[in-house]
């Protein structure tokens, strides 16, 4: 078998997260793919429809993918029920550099679906106390109903600082309202020993990075995960170029000192 042929996996659970987002728990039907790590992604094949890149959103035993229905393939994936099969290739791309963060304070900033690829980082902190210096998780969502993993958050809060903000509160929301960067003022940032991991829509990434750099965090201690069109995941289709980078090989997780000048060029 080669890296272009998907390996069959079975859906063992399909959990709705929000109105348009589902978490799929998967197990190999026969052969398993090599182990994934946080930040890396799989190419996921919906039978007869197509294949799309999806980040791993949990790695505790079973592989979990959190998929938002935005089109044909993701729409089909969100319709899957336990027992259904998908094809999987991977793991592809770079992961979050967590070893470098072992002695650091880790700051996770996620916007919208950007929390999915960062959830395994939080899980590591919970499952292996002492893994990181400290961990603060800042989450921005459009509305309370669009907040991912809401049921899990109380458990996270037992050992991790979690701050959530929404753009559009509903009448029951008692939490913070505003952009995710406003949360930076609410946490104790020890800039000399913080590493930041940022994921979300590109404009949110740039805005968050600017706010962190303005506070004095060096760009080399900030990592982000970027999205581009990807057809193969193996560096052969040419779609995921961002200037000199092939994001399926050099990314999706890259250091901000590399990302910043590239994101500054329009339509690169």
């Amino acid at each position: 078998m080669t890296t272009t042929v998907p390996v069959p996996y079975r859906v063992t659970a399909a959990t709705p997260e929000t109105a348009d987002t589902v978490s799929l728990e998967l197990e190999p039907i026969e052969r398993a793919l090599p182990a994934f790590s946080p930040g890396r992604f799989a190419m996921v094949y919906a039978f007869g429809i197509g294949e799309v890149p999806i980040s791993v959103s949990a790695l505790r035993g079973r592989l979990v993918l959190t998929v938002r229905a935005v089109g044909a393939v993701t729409g089909a994936l969100c319709q899957l029920r336990p027992g259904d099969a998908v094809g999987l290739r991977g793991p592809y791309g770079t992961g979050w550099d967590l070893d470098a963060a072992a002695d650091s304070d880790l700051l996770v900033v996620a916007g919208g679906l950007g929390l999915a690829p960062l959830r395994p980082v939080v899980h590591q902190a919970l499952d292996r106390p002492g893994r990181f210096g400290s961990l603060a998780v800042l989450v921005g969502a459009r509305s309370p109903g669009e907040l991912l993993y809401r049921a899990e958050l109380p458990q996270w809060r037992t050992s991790v600082q979690v701050e959530v903000t929404v753009d559009q509160p509903d009448p029951t929301w008692r939490g913070t309202v505003g952009v995710v960067t406003a949360l930076l003022d609410r946490i104790d940032l020890r800039l000399d020993r913080t590493r930041a991991l940022v994921c979300g829509p590109e404009a949110m990434i740039r805005h968050t990075a600017r706010a962190l750099l303005a506070r004095g965090l060096p760009a080399r201690r900030l990592q982000t995960s970027l999205e581009r069109n990807m057809r193969c995941g193996t560096g052969h289709c040419g779609h995921c170029q961002l200037g000199p980078l092939l994001l399926c090989l050099d990314g999706p997780v890259i250091g901000y000192e590399r990302a910043e000048p590239l994101l500054a060029v329009r339509e690169l």
């Binding site: 348009d20 938002r68 935005v70 916007g111 679906l113 505003g178 979300g200 404009a203 949110m204 805005h207």
Partner: peptide, 17 residues
């Protein structure tokens, strides 16, 4: 003001931001 502008973009909207 900057934060308000960013929120005007409705970045996490279902499609396209």
């Amino acid at each position: 003001l900057q934060a308000t502008r960013i929120r005007l973009l409705d970045l996490y909207a279902p499609v396209g931001g």
